[in-house]
């Protein structure tokens, strides 16, 4: 079970990293969503117990799932949502000002700006 969860976390995390390394803005945002999901799954997986939902009255005889990791996961999910929403609009903003979602072009623009800065100073 632990191994299974870990493998899924690894796959989700790895896919997220792959998207981060892709060439466009929105794939990067999608990558962070996946990585965020991987972290939340890790949190839930960090629970000590598995069983029924931690809501009273507990079903007799069965173990109750660890409630703390659920609360943490909820908080982390929501924080991830807030941050990703901001990231998404930042991506839209970057697109609006440079009219491209291609990261290669964006980094070229950055490099050009820096070179201009250097020349202006020299």
């Amino acid at each position: 079970m632990t191994l299974l969860v870990s493998v899924v976390v690894a796959i989700v995390f790895g896919s997220g990293c792959y998207l981060l390394l892709k060439g466009d803005l929105f794939r990067v945002v999608a990558g962070t969503v996946l990585i965020s999901n991987a972290a939340v799954l890790t949190l839930v997986g960090a629970g000590f117990t598995r069983g029924a939902a931690p809501i009273r009255p507990f079903p007799p005889g069965s173990e109750v799932s660890d409630p703390l990791v659920q609360a943490l996961a909820l908080t982390a999910l929501i924080i991830g949502f807030g941050v990703t929403a901001l990231l998404l609009t930042l991506a839209a903003r970057v697109y609006a000002s440079s009219r491209t979602v291609d990261l290669d072009q964006l980094s070229q623009i950055e490099a050009t700006r820096e070179d201009e800065l250097e020349e202006a100073e020299a």
Partner: peptide
Amino acid sequence: PLIAVVSGLFALAVVWGTL
């Protein structure tokens, strides 16, 4: 893909190890 696989592997190691 290589970096992605490597990061997946280290995520596996870390998560499995700590959990």
